[in-house]
């Protein structure tokens, strides 16, 4: 079974993404650690997010600001969809 928590170094290794770029993603809040005990740890959602960011960057040339805008919109849509499902279930 997959490891569910990854250090920053493991993320770099698994994704083969540029270390500085990943640091920039973290700095801009595009990937967020799930725990910060001795060092930050990330989960599968963060790994998926990196893959998505790398895809958007390579395929559409989005810069970090653009990626942040896209991710905020996607997150907002997902939150609203969840709220709509929750409220509709009251019927």
């Amino acid at each position: 079974m997959p490891t569910e928590r990854y250090t920053f170094e493991t993320l770099v290794e698994i994704t083969s993404a540029d270390r500085q770029l990943l640091a920039a993603y973290r700095e801009h809040g595009l990937i967020v650690p799930v725990s910060e005990d001795a060092e930050p740890h990330f989960d599968d959602d963060a790994l998926h997010q990196i893959r998505r960011l790398e895809f958007l960057r390579a395929a559409y040339g989005a810069n970090v600001e653009g990626l942040r805008a896209i991710c905020q919109l996607l997150e907002r849509v997902e939150t609203l969809e969840a709220e709509v499902r929750f409220l509709r279930a009251r019927l």
Partner: peptide
């Protein structure tokens, strides 16, 4: 997701 060559691994 299709990852273009050089991106993501």
């Amino acid at each position: 997701y299709g990852f273009p060559p050089g991106a993501g691994g």
